[in-house]
Design a protein around this nucleic acid. Sequence first.
DNA 1: ATAATTTACGTAAATACTTACATAATATAT
DNA 2: ATATATTATGTAAGTATTTACGTAAATTAT
Lengths: 317, 317
Amino acid sequence: MENRLKELRELAVSHRLKRLSENLINDMKRLYKELKIDYEPRWFAISHFLIENKSASINELSKATGYTHPAVIQIVEQMIKNKLIETSKSINDKRKRKLVLSLKGTEIFNSIHPIISDIEESIKEINKEAGYDILNIIESFENTLKEKSLYERTILKVKKRQFDAVEVFRYSPSYKEYFINLNSEWLQKYFEVEKVDLKILSNPETEIIDKGGEIFFARYENEIVGTCAAIKLDNENFELAKLGVTEKAQGKQIGRKLVLAVIGFAYARGAKAVVLETAKNLIKAINLYESLGFKYIPDFHKSTYKRPTFWMKLDLR
Amino acid sequence: MENRLKELRELAVSHRLKRLSENLINDMKRLYKELKIDYEPRWFAISHFLIENKSASINELSKATGYTHPAVIQIVEQMIKNKLIETSKSINDKRKRKLVLSLKGTEIFNSIHPIISDIEESIKEINKEAGYDILNIIESFENTLKEKSLYERTILKVKKRQFDAVEVFRYSPSYKEYFINLNSEWLQKYFEVEKVDLKILSNPETEIIDKGGEIFFARYENEIVGTCAAIKLDNENFELAKLGVTEKAQGKQIGRKLVLAVIGFAYARGAKAVVLETAKNLIKAINLYESLGFKYIPDFHKSTYKRPTFWMKLDLR
DNA sequence: ATAATTTACGTAAATACTTACATAATATAT
DNA sequence: ATATATTATGTAAGTATTTACGTAAATTAT
């Protein structure tokens, strides 16, 4: 409990940042209202850019301010209604609008200048009292997140954790059923179980193990959820085949760990390459193979199956 | 221009804080989605509180999380729809609802625990790279603003600036018309110009100046916008009277500066007190008088006017 | 030169809240 | 004991933005 409470603190960062920002924006609004200035804080960034650059298009404003373009359209619309902005079609590019501040817009912007200065001063004062320069800090966090977002950082950790939670172990006769079932699942979903499949799946010992290959299984949260075979083709080549991960356990690094087991097995036996035969519609599998360095090889072998397949290869030397 | 650009930087603080927070919240959402967890980040604070405290009412949750109570109602509604929360009427207080996490709610909350930890770790990592502890910083700013908000800080500066921009000067015959007009404005708006008023307004020299009093005027942006008289009652008492500030210039510290001029005048002449006669519906004026230390005195004098009035007094010793 | 892609803008709807207001139940003051 | 104030909740509507999607014009590729 104690532990969790502490965690909430860190997790609440985003929420509290938002509140802090809303606080400041509301105070600005209240100031304008109190001083009877007909001006919304959200107009500021756009007014400012138009003062500096004379005219701009919706898109330019969006990029300059960081608002999405529909947001800019809506803010600009408001400003047009308040006669602060005038709009016309661009001449050289008929898609674009040319937006300029009206005389009234310029006047109001200049008239709020003293208040802006006061707000500025207040923020500096707040910085001093708080003991931090908030702007520097924001910039620093923006840069840190630009390098690697919270999402990217966290997903790496999650994958690592999942990867570590998968236990891979070798074939023994008692797991024979799993080999059939886990492979039937995806074969039935995407294609059909062909005779060639059935021959291997039903006789893993004679077809794979006895010929110098191996079959791996993956256990995740006490359930056997995946399998993959290494078939010895010759002294220099192994085939990775019959990779199957049950649907509800997908996306948990199980396939990756199984493929790595096969590669490791082949490598330990002095193989030069691992090849595999797969099909275009097995997108997740192909992505996995590619991420581990497998490359498409045209005309390597004719297809073993009725289903249309192609071959990939990973060089081990 | 340069100058203004620099200012925008400070002013954009709130906007950028908001974006930073949205960034983080969106990343969290994306994480839950990617990991196929049926959970919204906004549920977290409430789930957490209910895990810690077993049950709570809408109001308690609002206070604990910082959301407004309608926000809590809406989030809770969502969670009820997702069967994460169960609700019942409170027994001892029929206004209250008793909200508890359902079994499913508890399970889901516990199941996201590892991801929460990963997010936590990521935030710590971000802190380290950015070189700041964001949570400390937020807290520091929250405290600074709690002591004195951006609004309060800024409004003080604005008032000071306005106050300094008002120029107060003394009566001379050429300003006679202003004395009549500025006072007629408010008299006509709130009451009517009575004979007693007219006598003083038309003869400021004989009625006020020659008897040892004074009339002050205020100039703001090159216009005469306010006036106020100090009438000598006897050697120990002055009456503050005929305070008028034209409507469009109100709220700019003009009245305050005029009243201070009258007080200063009386003080310089060795007066013991300044009194004034005002009316209940002149709310802004009364607020001003009170803020400067004037106190209500019952039965001081009978009313000089047809309109219902009362007296206030400021002791100078 | 034509097809395909990208860019610029627009619109509708969704999101995550807030404000403002209403009402019933409870607590407090006279 | 009764009026008054406060509290807890609810509801409707507003706000400031985003996402998602569509279309026309311009650019690039073939």
